[in-house]
Design a protein around this nucleic acid. Structure first.
Lengths: 136, 136
DNA sequence: CTAAAACCTGACGTTGACGTCAGAGGCAAG
DNA sequence: CTTGCCTCTGACGTCAACGTCAGGTTTTAG
């Protein structure tokens, strides 16, 4: 298939696919006229790339880990890098979980404030003292 | 305390603290000569900011949610925004969890390959056919 | 054949959270 | 007073993952 179709099927832009190729993340056959042609497997590949990006890995890192992830071809060094990234993601998850808990407690507290009438009237601007300061 | 100390105590750079002030995330008193002076509470504040950044919120978003998070002063609108961000973080977490599982399975598979001797010898280059192609 | 779509390369623009450098004060120690 | 560290305000640099535009070729539809 050509770039447009691959883009449509994966949901990423054509520009992004060209970028992946630049970064050696995704190879493509070329027709005599120079147009890119991808096999079906490219769809999965792109989705994998997206997933790894979403995990916070850089292009460079993904390139390095690709042979391992795709073919299971690993060296001890690659395995170590893989473990490093795995741990990094784990830490990201716990960090996010803490942030989530924090926001949750804020939501709860703020919601309670709303219920007790602290500032639940959108009509009312913040005028705690409705006639106290010397006018204009 | 002054910027240098706050930076040292929070682990963020002086530049970052000035940036937070630019973004209205962190106010500072000024000495007559113009130097910034922070109260003790600034340490916690900076850590909160860091946590929210780590959660993927932008400066703009943090600024908007700050009054709610700090003082519990919420409007229905703020509560809604808060819930939106909460959900976003939740999705990030599940995404990361999936990526983590993927990497885990890769690690397991690759580790098994290593054990079965597939490519565990860093010495050996990839030469599946050690004398087949017509030499130079 | 022609017009429209899709594709190509190349190159500059964008965004966010800072890094870094320059030049000019401020402040405690000797 | 001078040395030396800290701080100040600009203002430009960076980095990643693309967006976008220009100007030209290829493929497809009619």
């Amino acid at each position: 298939m050509r770039v447009g179709e691959l883009a449509a099927r994966t949901g990423v832009s054509v520009r992004a696919l060209r970028y992946y190729e630049e970064q050696h993340l995704l190879a493509a056959e070329r027709s005599p006229s120079g147009q890119r042609h991808y096999p079906e497997s490219a769809v999965d590949r792109v989705e994998l790339i997206q997933q790894l990006y979403a995990a916070g890995l850089s292009s460079k890192t993904i390139v390095e880990l690709m042979p391992c992830v795709l073919d299971g071809r690993a060296t001890p060094e690659l395995l170590r890098r893989l473990a490093v990234e795995r741990d990094r993601i784990g830490r990201r998850i716990t960090d996010l979980t803490h942030a989530l808990e924090r926001l949750d407690s804020v939501v709860t507290a703020a919601g309670a404030n709303l219920l007790t009438g602290r500032s639940c009237r959108p009509e009312a601007r913040e005028e705690p003292r409705p006639s106290r300061s010397p006018g204009t």
